[in-house]
């Protein structure tokens, strides 16, 4: 059984239909990417999984359990955690405070300490700046913090929304390296990206979204080779 399964998801913003029946599967231990142009419905899909948006038709299932009616905090508690688009760190709080808030669903202080140690091992830069205000970090460091904060909730599946947005290529490389490492350590990842080159290099499988529907899917290597994808998303 798939870890996460979306079935015929339809979502509207008022009269505008953003998702027109999206179905996809993410299996335990995978990195799956969702690529597509602006406005294709990538972020809408993630926000629906994490419960911030409600589908008017279709279901989201985690190991077969329907999540559609679970409130957002309940979904986090079940191990589905989203790193929001545009980083959205708590700028007026310190790096450490951001991490502590990320562990809001964790009740044992031992687990929180362990989580912080893990975050610092993953991103040594954050340890150097633990006491600094998150708002004063560079864009790349803020993205690292946003990912580390989400990991504090000990997710089974991490939803990443455009982690490369607005970052220099060298930083994008670092972020994706961290994503691969998080995956190797046992966290399943659903990655939404506009940077299709990086996304398809990192993921095992991928889905291509166009105006609210999945138009292509398959192993990342196949998609990389697909002439349509090459022309539309890889700029070749």
């Amino acid at each position: 059984m798939a870890l996460l399964e979306l079935d015929g998801l339809q979502v509207s913003y008022g009269a505008i239909q953003a998702l027109r029946g999206v179905s996809l599967e993410v299996h335990e231990g995978e990195i799956v990417t969702l690529i597509g142009a602006n406005g294709a419905g990538k972020s809408t899909t993630l926000n629906t999984i994490s419960g911030l948006l409600r589908p008017h038709r279709g279901t989201v299932r985690l190991e077969g359990h329907d999540l559609t009616l679970v409130p957002p905090h309940g979904i986090v508690a079940r191990g589905v955690v989203q790193v929001p688009e545009g980083r959205r760190i708590f700028g007026r709080l310190s790096v450490l405070e951001n991490l502590q808030l990320g562990a809001f669903t964790q009740r044992s202080s031992h687990a929180i300490r362990e989580g912080i140690a893990h975050a610092f091992a993953l991103f040594p830069r954050l340890q150097e700046r633990a006491g600094q205000l998150a708002g004063t970090l560079s864009g790349g460091e803020q993205q690292m913090l946003a990912i580390a904060r989400a990991l504090m909730a000990r997710p089974r599946i991490l939803l990443l929304d455009e982690p490369s947005m607005g970052l220099a290529p060298v930083l994008v490389e670092q972020i994706f390296e961290a994503v691969r490492r998080i995956n190797r350590e046992g966290t399943t990842i659903l990655l939404v990206e506009q940077n299709a080159v990086m996304a398809l290099e990192t993921a095992q499988r991928g889905y291509v979204l166009e105006t609210g529907a999945v138009v292509l899917q398959g192993p990342a290597a196949d998609l990389q080779a697909n002439p349509e994808v090459r022309r539309a998303y890889l700029g070749q």
Binding site: S50, P71, F90, G91, L93
Partner: peptide, 24 residues
């Protein structure tokens, strides 16, 4: 924990929800 939840929604409601805080 309630105080920390308040702090989180004060700073950013949407993110607070995303890290597992019940806004209601």
């Amino acid at each position: 924990p309630l105080g920390r939840a308040w702090m989180a929604i004060r700073e950013d409601e949407d993110v607070a929800e995303a890290i597992g805080i019940s806004l209601v």
